[in-house]
Design a protein around this nucleic acid. Structure first.
Lengths: 160, 160
DNA sequence: AAAAACCCTGTAGTCGCTACAGGGTCAAGG
DNA sequence: CCTTGACCCTGTAGCGACTACAGGGTTTTT
């Protein structure tokens, strides 16, 4: 089948399929006389595998590692387990930080009465006071110290 | 103070500071005769404000909107509240999806006994079976349908 | 004086996609 | 047969929030 059919079968964009091939996750398919990619059922299964792992929020690098392990039956199951464990740890860490963040935002949200102008806005007061070194309601001292090491919005794939 | 001092005072990389300036979040500072940026206390406060909002996982665009509101005391407090509300919604949505993901990974993790080789690995069996169209333990039918619309790892800043 | 640290602008890269640009191929309809 | 629209190709660029150079100038430390 052609790339559009593969994409439709797996619910994946054509560009994403080409991206995975470029990344080495999907093997290069054969080509027709017109240069079009011709995919087999095995490609669909590989793509489904990848998408399944992506649904588990695994990085493409980790998925590549899993695929390597699949290709080597003598490798230990524990290596697979390690990848899943790593992912679980990351998920839990992110859950913790998001729970804290939710609490912080709720505190902050409670400061706004909706009827005032920003000159009297409790939220902005809090944010501005915090930027001037005063304690703020949305961060405890410990959490405030931690927030100095912002990791950005990417969560799982923090570079450091 | 120079950019390195500002960065040290706020716990921010020099490149990030320049990035914020390029993004228009930080006002351009004056320059010395040598072309070096010379920052005032107000810059430090603005930077702290930005970092505080980043700690609340707000996007730079939203932070820019907040700064605009700060600059216009006649604007309504409810506009600020709206930004925080939007952020709260995003945090909660992300929490929900991560909880589901944690459950899925736990199910999957339970399949690995650690002593086997990947040829008999329960995790891989699950992932491979799922890629071949069989039901899997880590996704209920409903969740599996949803996972076809993978949003990627960026969570908050999903384009669609 | 030399070396190290700091600064500058501009560019490129990370992650996982997504969206073109420019051009070729195929199938359906007039 | 011709036209049109859908599909395909490769290559490049962009998103968000940074981070890391490259190449060169300035300041501080040894």
């Amino acid at each position: 089948m052609r790339i559009g059919e593969l994409g439709a079968a797996a619910g994946v964009e054509v560009e994403t399929i080409r991206y995975y091939e470029k990344r080495g996750l999907l093997p290069e398919p054969g080509r027709g006389a017109n240069g079009y990619r011709m995919y087999a059922q095995t490609h669909l299964e590989r793509l489904a595998f990848i998408r399944h792992c992506r649904a588990l929020d695994m990085s493409l690098d980790d998925i590549g590692r899993l695929l390597e392990l699949t290709a080597h039956p003598e490798a230990e199951c524990r290596d697979v387990g390690r990848l899943i464990d790593g992912q679980l740890i990351r998920v839990r860490e992110r859950l913790n930080s998001l729970h804290a963040l939710e609490r912080q935002l709720q505190f902050l949200r409670a400061r706004c009465s909706s009827r005032e102008q920003t000159g009297n806005c409790g939220i902005l007061h809090e944010l501005i006071a915090a930027s001037q070194g005063e304690p703020c309601v949305c961060h405890s001292t410990e959490e405030k110290a931690k927030s100095r090491r912002i990791c950005g919005s990417t969560g799982f794939y923090c570079k450091r």
